[in-house]
């Protein structure tokens, strides 16, 4: 696990109320890219909060429409939540998020000072 974007331990209480969505995380030269599976969550159901160095991602499921009886169920009715501690090299003002077909993608840009740079020799 990278030190740069460590996952904050969920408390037991949190685990009961939310399901933990699977994530992919990759590191590019100027940013981290985080992908989170949240099927059933519409665009307006995504909540992204950055506070005290912690990034909390919550996905609220849309309530099922109609009164059809559920005769077989494998999905969870619980909302999604995952919490990450951000590397100080990430600029919290430049986090870009998009939601497409239940896939939340975050692009976490590094601060200018933390980006790799080329230094020329005089």
């Amino acid at each position: 696990m990278p030190q740069e974007l460590a996952e904050t331990e969920n408390s037991n209480a949190t685990r009961v109320d939310y399901s933990t969505p699977p994530v992919n995380l990759r590191h590019e030269s100027d940013a981290y890219v985080l992908e989170v599976d949240m099927p059933g969550v519409p665009k307006n159901g995504v909540e992204i909060v950055f506070d005290d160095g912690k990034l909390t991602l919550t996905g609220h499921r849309a309530k099922p429409a109609g009164a059809a009886r559920l005769v077989h169920s494998e999905s969870s009715a619980r909302d999604y939540r995952r919490v990450f501690t951000l590397d100080p090299a990430i600029d919290p003002n430049r986090i870009e998020a998009s939601m497409d077909q239940g896939l939340l993608t975050l692009r976490l840009q590094k601060t200018e000072a933390a980006k790799p740079r080329r230094i020329s020799v005089n």
């Binding site: 696990m1 974007l5 699977p22 994530v23 992919n24 590191h27 890219v33 992908e35």
Partner: peptide, 14 residues
């Protein structure tokens, strides 16, 4: 989305 040469994958749970 395959990690290209410039990127490094840290987590792959999906």
């Amino acid at each position: 989305k395959a990690a290209d040469r410039q990127s490094e994958s840290f987590r792959s749970e999906r």
